[in-house]
Design a protein around this nucleic acid. Structure first.
Length: 564
RNA sequence: UGCCUCAUGGUGUAACGGUAGCACAGCAGAUUCUGAAUCUGCUUGUCUUGGUUCAAAUCCAGGUGAGGCAACCA
């Protein structure tokens, strides 16, 4: 369930709906729908629409509901794999369509009947023109179209032809059914739009029962009306389809409902692409590992990356709703995950790029157990014990041999605090023959245990995380970054250009990290904060019992490297 | 050389004829056993030109800019 209350100030669509409810239109019912075509995986842009449609239903309870309807009118592009993934994604986002799962294909018989009705009224006709002829007669953006020579066939002849289309007497492309509206309309969609075409294709639900399939423009408004949808919300590119939507609702008799359509701007996000076609291309050309590659803006991708439903819902609420084609910064999405994960993710110590530290004045042997806080944002999460011994790993980034003035972690001769343990001082930098740093020899100060700050001692500014070397787990960690190097890959590529040239070569770095032993039992699909590093998620596919694999969801904000 | 829609800080949005506000990002400081989080402060905006009005981001007109539209796709 969404925990989203109605926003303080309503967007233009919610305002319209509130007016309808106040005016008791549709008996004050609000019925929305999310109508994906099962021809690809859902992405974060769809999440915007899902949150809108299901959110509005939730806000208007109890006289409200939201349907999930598959717009499956084009069997050549659609697949059962997609209808399954879409249901999974909507559920994961936290929404529930209850009994209201529908398919446009459920209405094929009724839709056929409505077409017969339009023919009888003289509002639809069978056209024998070829695709090229239809196109040529449609005119252009600046020139009106011209009527088809078949436009004035008798209802009788049209009925007979349409029946034979259904019966499979014709080949694909031989005949179409068109609405008879206005070939001179300035709106191209009104120039006798095609409403049925012949497709000798196997449909994933209706099998071979049909060889004619309704077009979106025809099926959509009538499906809405059949389901009693009151508010049909879609993206801006359908704006000029609205007159056709209304024409059909007004000219078909016997519809149980009278929906209206309103449009809003789709989501654009920096450093990614958001079209199903391009995402499919990335998958098919193996530029990513699949639809659920954690770098993909798909719902399954961001889920596997470790984003949470609450974070995505909050993001969708934050971006607002307008008719301006805006570009939202990825940073806002990242802010929303951090905000959620900061509250809920268990903290854990993990060293991404290990540097060995030997505590020369610490006794050899089993060492001790240090009590660490699981989540300072939620004391109820308690503490855990983590081993500490003479040999440790710290992150290579937390040591600088030649530090800048503002670096306040470990430096030669300097002191740093090992979080929840004690302070250590670096006395020797051990290097291999090539001059690479391989270890640090340090001493620890027993008087600084558990955060103690004895008076008179110089202040220790830095606090770093650590892992006991003999206990450390070697674990695969994948560091994900933005998919593209350009904020707008499409724009940067230009009309003819190839956006894939802007794929970020550093969008994935795989390394073996040293993690505290407690993560051995981490369940797949769990969120963690590697303290001071970032938020990580145990990969649900690749983790094995005792051998978790971690995906970096998002790095922690880093005030130090930013300042540089 | 058409039609439709839109235009508020860097970004996303609010203000419905009466004090331009919020969030993100950025900057500065406080705090901190995470250079995180938290807290405080700051920088930055009504596309343009006219008009209506006591008063315009808001209403009107022109301009400019942006998005969409000529699949038997959705």
């Amino acid at each position: 369930m969404s925990d989203a209350p109605a926003p303080a100030s309503k967007d233009f669509i919610r305002e319209l709906i509130a007016e309808d409810v106040a005016a008791q239109r549709n008996d004050a019912w609000v019925v929305t729908r999310f109508p994906p075509e099962p021809n690809g995986y859902l992405h974060i842009g769809h999440a915007k629409s899902i949150c809108l449609n299901f959110g509005i239903a939730l806000e208007n309870a109890p006289k409200s509901r939201c349907h999930l309807r598959f717009d499956d009118t084009n069997p050549v592009k659609e697949d059962i794999e997609y209808v399954q993934s879409i249901q999974e994604d909507v559920k994961w986002l936290g929404f529930d369509w209850g009994q209201h799962l529908y398919y446009a294909s459920d209405y094929f018989e009724k839709l056929y009947g409505f077409a017969v009705q339009l023919i009888e009224k003289g509002l639809a006709y069978v056209d024998d023109q070829t695709l090229e002829q239809v196109r040529a007669h449609r005119g252009s953006l600046t020139a009106p179209g011209t009527p088809s020579p078949f436009r004035d066939r008798s209802a009788q002849e049209n009925l007979d032809l349409f029946n034979r289309m259904r019966a499979g007497e014709f080949k694909e492309g031989e005949r179409i059914l068109r609405a008879k509206i206005d070939m001179a309309s300035p709106n191209m969609n009104m120039r006798d739009p095609v409403i049925y075409r012949i497709l000798h294709a196997h449909h994933h639900r209706t099998g071979d029962a049909w060889c004619i399939y309704p077009m979106y423009d025809y099926a959509h408004p009538l499906s809405d009306a059949l389901e009693g949808i009151t508010h049909s919300l879609c993206t801006l590119e359908f704006e000029h389809h609205r007159p056709l939507y209304e024409w059909l609702i007004n000219n078909v008799d016997g519809l149980p409902g009278h929906p209206y359509q309103r449009e809003f701007a789709r989501l654009n996000l920096t450093y990614t692409v958001m079209s199903k076609r391009k995402l499919l291309e990335l998958v098919k050309t193996d530029l990513v590992s699949g639809w659920d590659d954690p770098r993909m803006p798909t719902i399954s991708g961001i889920r596997r990356r470790g984003y949470t439903p609450a974070a995505v819902r909050n993001f969708c609420e934050t971006i607002g709703l307008t008719k301006f084609p805006s570009l939202t910064e990825l940073a806002l999405l990242e802010h929303c995950v951090r905000e959620d994960l900061n509250k809920h993710a268990q903290r854990v110590y993990g060293v991404l790029r290990p540097l060995k530290v030997v505590l020369t004045n610490y006794p050899e042997g089993p060492g001790e157990q240090i009590e660490l806080v699981n989540n300072p944002e939620n004391p109820a999460d308690g503490t855990r014990l983590v081993p500490l011994t003479r040999e440790l790993y710290i992150d290579a980034e937390d040591f600088m041999e030649h530090p800048s003035a503002d670096f306040h972690r470990l430096v030669p001769g300097g002191e740093v605090r090992l979080k929840y343990a004690f302070c250590i001082t670096c006395h020797e930098v051990v290097k291999d023959p090539e001059g690479r740093i391989i270890a640090l020899h340090c001493t620890y100060d027993d008087a600084t245990r558990r955060g103690a700050k004895p008076v008179g001692r110089p202040k220790v500014k830095g606090t770093i995380h650590w892992v006991s070397a003999p206990h450390a787990l070697d674990v695969q960690v994948r560091l994900y970054d933005k998919l593209f190097t350009e904020p707008q890959p499409d724009e940067a590529a230009g009309a003819e250009g190839n956006y894939t040239q802007f794929l970020n070569p550093a969008s994935l770095e795989t390394l073996t990290a040293k993690l505290e032993p407690s993560v051995a039992t981490a369940q797949p699909g769990s969120h963690f904060q590697f303290e001071r590093v970032g938020y990580f998620f145990t990969d649900p596919k690749d983790s094995q019992p005792g051998h978790p694999v971690f995906n970096r969801t998002v790095a922690l904000k880093d005030g130090f490297s930013k300042a540089k």
